[in-house]
Amino acid sequence: MTEVTTKSAQQGKEPIRASEFDPKFKYELQKIHGAENILRCFQCGTCTSDCPIARFSDTYRPRTLIHMAQLGLKDRVLNSDTLWLCAACFTCTDRCPQDVEVAAVIRVFRNLAAEKGCIPQVFKDQAQSLIETGYAYMIPELRIKKRVSQGLPPLPKGNPETIRKVLRGVKFFDRIQQWGDQK
């Protein structure tokens, strides 16, 4: 990750070219659930100053990401590796004086990045587990058997067939299926 953050820091330092701006980006965002209030942000910085991740990361700054999005720097925002550092603690969402729902906006950025195929491995593993077991983690058979000796009732069935059925037509799900086919 050190490598990743250094790369991101360098990316951020490259001069912005006029051709990079996408003036429609902010209006597209406004239509997506969670990012409706993005234009209300007046760059006070409450989100970044209260962000526990920003305290320990040299590059993750929610205010900067929102500013970049408002300016229309779509590719820079969506290709940013630091986007994936947000811990979804929702401190920024609760404290934003403009009701921007900052964590939800970050989630919208991530969803858009994922649509372009930019997905960290950890999410791919969880998705694979979901369609195979119905749970986000591969719960070892040993653990499931151990429940009896621990006096615990059986684990509810994950029923992955119904998951595959119910998620049909969801873009992200189609992508997981493709990975499965490639295996």
Binding site: A88, A127, L130, G134, P156, F172
Partner: peptide, 14 residues
């Protein structure tokens, strides 16, 4: 029967 609540997938697909 129950499955994952959905939370782990919010970042990639709301």
């Amino acid at each position: 029967e129950f499955n994952c609540c959905g939370l782990p997938f919010d970042p990639v697909s709301h």
